[in-house]
């Protein structure tokens, strides 16, 4: 069909439609979240073969392809592996809320862990938000059993 100049082109909107989910966190993740909720402490899981400590804990060490079941304590302090200061806001698709910019976004290797945890940092100071900087987790007063029980990390 020839393109009609100025022709009205319609759209169909999804409106308020959404897909609800109820994901199981599983034993490994639940143990991690409960440790935060009840004791404000972190745990990881250690691979019996390569010795890597994974945070958050999961069942399988991908590299060794073995099941892990040794939970080990991990510090609530650690160092920044990589970081950014976000100046451009966006709306979180699950909450519909926009986080005020700028904010720090960091990957923290907690002492005792071999993997990093991505989270927010309460500073957006480019002089201080640096790779290798030491940070500590700040927990929400009332924990609900979610990764957001960590309110954010803070520079030590």
């Amino acid at each position: 069909m020839e393109k009609k100049k100025g022709m009205e082109l319609l759209t169909i909107s999804s409106g308020d439609m959404f897909q609800p989910y109820r994901w199981s966190v599983g034993k490994y993740g639940s143990k991690f979240l409960l440790e935060i909720k009840e004791n404000k402490r972190f745990i990881g899981v250690k691979c019996p073969k390569c010795g890597r400590v994974y945070v958050p804990p999961r069942k399988v060490c991908g590299r060794c392809y073995v099941a892990m079941d040794e939970f080990v304590p991990v510090s609530d302090e650690g160092e920044i592996v990589v970081c950014a200061i976000i100046e451009f806001g966006f709306v979180d698709p699950s909450t519909g809320v926009q986080r005020p910019v700028p904010y720090g976004y960091v990957f923290v290797k907690l002492d005792g862990a071999d993997t990093a945890l991505p989270h927010f940092l309460d500073s957006a100071d480019p002089e201080k938000v640096k790779v290798g900087a030491r940070v500590k987790a700040v927990f929400e007063e009332e924990c609900k059993g979610s990764i957001m029980d960590i309110k954010h990390f803070t520079l030590i």
């Binding site: 806001g89 966006f90 991505p118």
Partner: peptide, 30 residues
């Protein structure tokens, strides 16, 4: 941006992700 975030783990990454470009920004700065 919203759609890209749905690619990340709903429990461990989606609530605390820094936005779609954050993962690229951290790689670049490192």
């Amino acid at each position: 941006t919203g759609a890209i975030i749905t690619a990340f783990d709903p429990i461990w990454e989606r609530p605390n992700i820094g936005g779609a470009i954050a993962g690229l920004a951290v790689e670049a700065s490192k």
